[in-house]
């Protein structure tokens, strides 16, 4: 079986940043990682590979050169091959553009299964996966929490509001977006990391891939509106604690 996992490189959630026009500028130190849902999609693919011996697992990411770091980590976790679609990160490509680029490359590669996270950890749009499936003419199933492969048949469960689950059956090829669950991503192994260090990902320049013109444009980035008072308590920890307790007592909450 040939599996493709699409992963996105994100900044660590706690990284501080500044807004400049429609650009988000991180403050050093720059700490990047694989988006958490994508990492879980990769873990699901690796579990399939553990069970199904003749599985070939390709991992793909789109972005500027530092993206190679997350591809190497994926190789360290056990992926067989890495593909880097080289593209600038400013302005960030729209989901439809990303889907079109990935489809343009993946078409004709004979993948049986494409996995990605239910959404990117930072932008949380959940769009690239289903859009990619639309390009390929495959059925997407989103928010998958369980999957089993039996020959050319897939049995999946997807999670809905309130923990309700849908069970679906579908044939390969298919695209699934993976929701988080009890499975935690494995750590890279030393031997895989050594191999990854010597591996150069296949680089594909996005400029050579077809994509439609943007259908949306980011026209402003601003700090979010404060929806409540947002009173910031100052002082030492003890002073903050004292102030908070006083406020809770004033409101008869304590």
């Amino acid at each position: 079986m040939r599996i493709l996992v699409c992963i996105k490189q994100v900044w660590e959630p706690e990284s501080l940043f500044d807004l400049q026009g429609t650009e988000l500028r991180p403050r050093p130190p720059l700490r990047r990682k694989v988006g958490s849902y994508d990492e879980l999609a990769l873990e699901e693919a690796l579990r399939l590979k553990d069970r199904l011996p003749r599985t070939n697992l390709t991992v793909l990411s789109v972005g500027p050169p530092p993206v190679v770091d997350v591809l190497r980590r994926a190789l360290g976790m056990g992926a067989d091959r890495a593909v880097h679609i080289l593209a600038p990160d400013q302005p960030p490509p729209r989901p439809a553009t990303l889907a079109a680029w990935i489809a343009a490359w993946a078409q004709g590669q004979n993948f049986d299964l494409i996995l990605t996270g239910v959404m990117s950890e930072d932008a949380m749009q959940g769009a690239v996966g289903p859009m990619l499936a639309a390009h390929l003419g495959w059925p997407p199933v989103t928010s998958v929490v369980s999957l089993k492969v039996d020959g050319h048949a897939l049995a999946v469960e997807r999670e809905m509001e309130g923990g309700r689950r849908q069970r679906l059956a579908l044939p390969l090829p298919a695209l699934l977006t993976v929701q988080s669950g009890p499975n935690q991503p494995r750590y890279p192994t030393l031997s895989n990391l050594l191999r990854a260090k010597k591996t150069t990902p296949l680089t594909v320049d996005a400029a050579g891939l077809a994509a439609p013109p943007d259908r949306e444009k980011v026209v402003a980035l601003t700090p979010p509106e404060k929806r409540r008072a947002g009173l910031v308590l100052e002082g030492s920890a003890a002073q903050k604690a004292e102030r908070l307790l006083a406020m809770l007592r004033e409101r008869a909450l304590l």
């Binding site: 988000l24 930072d122 943007d214 949306e216 402003a220 509106e225």
Partner: peptide
């Protein structure tokens, strides 16, 4: 957007 830390305005084209 961005971990809920930024408000993004989109204009459809």
């Amino acid at each position: 957007a961005h971990y809920g830390k930024v408000r993004e305005e989109l204009a459809p084209t």
